[in-house]
Amino acid sequence: MTDLTSAIAIRAEGLAKTFHDPQRGVVEAVKGVDLDCRKGEIFGLLGPNGAGKTTTLRMLSTILAPTSGRALIDGIDVAEDPLEVRRRLGFLSGSTGLYPRLTGRETLRYFGRLHGLEGDRLEAAIARAFDAFDLHSFGDGRCEALSTGQKQRVSIARAVLHDPPVLILDEPTTGLDIMASSDMIQFIDSRREAGTCVLFSTHILSEAERLCDRIGIVYDGRMLAGGSLDELRAMTGKEWLEEIFRELVQRADAGEGAA
């Protein structure tokens, strides 16, 4: 039995984010999210658009500073040592763009160097990524000429080039065709054996149902519930994730109305 606290790769405690908007005043995008994600575990954040998934992931990956609460990645506080956190992090943003006029290999080399890889280590890492994601046929062409699926493969290869223990993916399958998104799901699945902690957001229920060890349901800036599919079933008394989701959202709306 491993020590549970040391195995926790991502921890968020009361994470909240508030924006100021001159027209609407204060906007609370995230109102307090708690979550734990262990090594070798796949955690899915499930929620509708505008629920606060992206903001949560951005706070965890040091891009945005939390208004309150704290977040630890591999035991390191994101606010205290963001550079160290970023070293342990592979991040794939929702709108992952690639430099259109760089080739896949140049892209990998650039980001590898930013991660401190150099010389033989860098070339070896690139060679591994080329094999793992089968980039050989298009990895030396400019990214602007690649198909969406090929681009996504280059992006993923870029995110895991430095072999990070924690992987945060923001809607990784959105906009992909069937083959590409199936490749992506296979890839996420494969990280489980590697002992990587994967946290990803999605609004596709079937994806979460199939892939995730645990699921967090986010709605209106709050984590309504978190746990394995069985735990969620027990909590709501519903069988399918879609029903569970509906039930939780209705409860939240009713609770708000009562308050």
Binding site: S61, T62, L83, R86, S93, S95, G97, L98, Y99
Partner: peptide, 14 residues
């Protein structure tokens, strides 16, 4: 606009 800046900002460099 291309979305590469967000990726660049999570790299471990100041």
């Amino acid at each position: 606009e291309a979305g590469t800046l967000e990726t660049l900002l999570v790299q471990p460099v100041p």
